[in-house]
């Protein structure tokens, strides 16, 4: 059930976490240990058991689509590290024009 360093490196990329080599080593060992422990789940035959994604049996919840009062622009932008006008400012997303 163990994970390899390469798998951990791939998960780090999917998770958008720039990990150091030391962190990759540590997480490889620790995640392997947790997966080994969790292998006990395979002792149970669950072929005929439905999964429970939610403990409370609520059906889909709908509401009327009524316009409300949005956050003021200054409040919505106030916690961002960089804004310009009414926008969040970020480094370039794509190449080209």
């Amino acid at each position: 059930m163990s994970v390899t360093r390469e798998e951990v490196r791939h998960i780090a990329l999917l998770s958008r976490l720039d990990l150091s080599e030391a962190e990759i080593d540590r997480f490889t060992a620790q995640i392997s240990q947790i997966l080994d422990y969790a292998a006990k789940l395979n002792e149970l035959d669950t072929a005929n058991v439905e999964p429970t994604f939610h403990a409370v049996p609520l059906e889909n919840v709908f509401r009327e689509d009524v316009p409300g009062q949005p956050l003021p622009l200054a409040d919505a932008l106030g916690n961002s590290a960089a804004t310009r006008g009414s926008f969040f400012e970020v480094p370039k997303v794509a190449d080209g024009s």
Partner: peptide, 30 residues
Amino acid sequence: VKRRIMLGTYVLSAGFYDAYYLKAQRIRTL
């Protein structure tokens, strides 16, 4: 937090979803 994000991403990733995440949700039923 990093460790849990990593573990969570792993159990949801292609090839492992059924074996880990879905399995855990079935055990939740039990």
